[in-house]
Design a protein around this nucleic acid. Structure first.
Lengths: 229, 229
DNA sequence: GGATGTGAAGTAGTTCACAGCC
DNA sequence: GGCTGTGAACTACTTCACATCC
């Protein structure tokens, strides 16, 4: 029974805000600040101070009344709650510009994620070394891993998803503009640039919200059977 | 008064689901299918059929009782509601792998978005042609545009944001792992790969939801002043 | 004094259940 | 028969207001 077990059930909105708070308090800590209060976090995250306090209170009593929070403690505890002490193997299929951008990004593979395999079909890329790994043939068998990232063109995405599932992957991050059909029990998370842009544009023309609009990005997952079922 | 004006106020969750429905019905139409019903859309989108019907009903009475929806009509009406008849200028700052992946993606610039300018600071990239545009110096003055996309490393993001705002940009899509401080009235939309991965991993280890978990990706925006205010 | 943490109230979104229509 | 569209019930999230503690 680790300390992680003490975390109460977190709501979906809370889960999506915690990584943002973490980024904020880490930046604060890096700049040598000793204390941060809910109002400061709220301002930077674009939410209300009450929401910040409720979210953080769900992780335990971390603050000091009258004095705010200690950034280091907050960062540590949020990390625990999000499961940063666990480790995941990640494989990436598709090493075009996007795939390369991801695996070379200092930001992508942190927090327990370990890059275990790279796959592509382009003969110019096959066998070359990217981010310290040799790129293998995506048409061959894929290694087993916890998470798979799909960075291939839309039409190829479903086949890659099928093969990832067959290889034992339990979560897929899909960058292809394609709705995937996967068996129950597999989580799919979509990141669609065009949709992000659409939503941003929509809010601009409609001037949503008194402060100019607090946006929520698109995201969708399904574990249900696809149209063929 | 165009037909767009008839759209009732759409809720935030509805707005983020509409582009997903649109993608689904467009694929359906492309495959020559004449009819689609709420259950089919729901299955592919990972939401309930009732939710689909409520979302679509907010756009008017588009379906036929007993027979479902006509994909072409649906796609058209969703487009109208999201403002696809409007046009936006988009400039992209930072043409590393990510920036290139975006501007070369057939998926990024659709629906009224027009790529108007590209900026970078790397002398190897400066002056070269990417996606039909010559890359200009990001340290010079930026052209005016509606939307700006930030694809630079984290530490440079805030300065770029300041310059985008000064150039008259009203909406920013930020791919840098950095919380930005912008003046009131400017919308910022964050896309953070590491956060997406974190949330996906969290849901896996916690087995959220009976169907394996319907995820919602991270997203945040603020128009409030930053820490310096 | 000042900021956290939290019951209570309010608001928004989802799901149920079914009337209405093809 | 079948599926849409929607009032009503429910659930979840946010916000208010303040007791609590440093």
């Amino acid at each position: 029974m680790t300390s992680r077990a003490r975390t109460r059930q977190l709501s979906e909105p809370t889960i999506s805000r915690l990584p943002i708070y973490q980024r904020i308090v880490e930046g604060w800590a890096a700049r040598g600040q000793r204390r941060i209060d809910s109002r400061q976090i709220a301002e930077m995250a674009g939410v209300t101070a009450t929401t910040v306090r409720r979210d953080l209170a769900a992780l335990g009593s971390l603050g000091t009344r009258g004095a705010g929070y200690e950034p280091a403690v907050l960062a540590e505890r949020i990390g625990e709650a999000l499961g940063h002490d666990l480790h995941y193997d990640v494989i990436v299929v598709g090493l075009g510009n996007l795939g390369r951008a991801l695996v070379n990004s200092s930001n992508f593979l942190i927090r327990g994620a370990h890059l275990a395999g790279l796959y592509d079909v382009d003969p110019h890329v096959l066998g070359t070394e990217v981010a310290g790994l040799v790129v293998a043939d995506a048409r061959g068998e894929l290694m087993s891993a916890t998470l798979g990232v799909i960075c291939v063109p839309g039409p190829a995405a479903q086949e890659v998803a099928d093969r990832l599932v067959a290889a034992g992957v339990r979560g897929i991050l899909n960058f292809a503009p394609q709705v995937l059909s996967v068996p129950l029990g597999t989580a799919v998370h979509y990141v669609d640039f065009s949709i992000e842009l659409q939503i941003l544009a929509f809010h601009l023309t409609n001037g949503t919200g008194p402060l100019g609009g607090v946006l929520h990005s698109v995201g969708l997952a399904t574990t249900g059977p696809g149209p063929g079922a």
